[in-house]
């Protein structure tokens, strides 16, 4: 039991750090590209291609490159992979949310004399937060699976139980690992959905309900 708990925490830590970094990069990128349609298309296109690359293939390509700085396997490639995979849902949702803010609201904000930065902070971002959170949720759920695979490059986490279960043909570890990682994904999904609702400004959620 101890190991499962430990591995779970390890798993959560990898995903949390990587998605955290992804939010810090993805949200500003998503906001920035609302200014330029061409840039937006390019960025979203690249992010979409990255996300289609299977994770184990991404690891396979990254290991030789990262080993040049002595970080070929383990924690670093896992975090980088998740960071990359999280970009599409987070950038895309940020971009769509900001780009789709009702023009009337934007005009109203301008009309009462807000500067573009004030508009962004007081109007556009608050309105976009539920949508951005939905992107974060997608990223987290998807990357709990990626982190499981990262066990094969020595990143630890619940994937270790699965990999050990397979190599030792030990169904107990295998099933325990598979169930634990599934439950973690489902729990994260529910938790983030709850968080998403909490973070939705009251005025918005009422309008939607």
């Amino acid at each position: 039991m101890d190991t499962i708990l430990e591995l779970t925490l390890q798993h959560i830590q990898i995903v949390a750090v990587a998605v955290g970094l992804a939010i810090l990069t993805g949200v500003p990128i998503g906001i920035a590209i609302t200014q330029d349609q061409r840039a937006a298309d390019t960025v979203l296109y690249i992010a979409a291609i990255i996300i289609t690359v299977p994770s184990i293939a991404l690891f396979g390509v990254m290991i030789p490159i990262l080993s040049l700085i002595g970080q070929g396997i383990g924690y670093v490639p896992a975090v980088i992979a998740i960071l990359l995979y999280s970009q599409l849902p987070i950038i895309r949702n940020t971009y769509t949310a900001i780009a789709n803010v009702d023009p009337a609201l934007r005009e109203a904000a301008r009309g009462i004399g807000m500067t573009p930065l004030q508009r962004l902070r007081q109007v556009e971002i608050p309105l976009a937060i539920p949508v951005i959170m939905a992107g974060v949720r997608t990223a987290v759920v998807m990357n709990i699976g990626v982190a499981a695979i990262a066990a094969y490059i020595g990143a630890g986490g619940l994937g270790q139980l699965i990999s050990r279960g397979i190599s030792q043909t030990d169904p107990r570890q295998l099933v325990a690992g598979a169930l634990a990682v599934s439950i973690l994904a489902i729990a994260a999904d529910f938790f983030l959905l709850w968080l998403q609702k909490r973070l939705t400004p009251r005025g918005l959620s009422v309008k939607r309900g």
Partner: peptide, 17 residues
């Protein structure tokens, strides 16, 4: 919907078990 959140590695592992 819950099923789609299950990581694919876990699905393969369960299938193997």
């Amino acid at each position: 919907n819950v099923g789609t959140t299950i990581p694919t590695l876990a699905i393969l592992a369960l299938s193997m078990s």
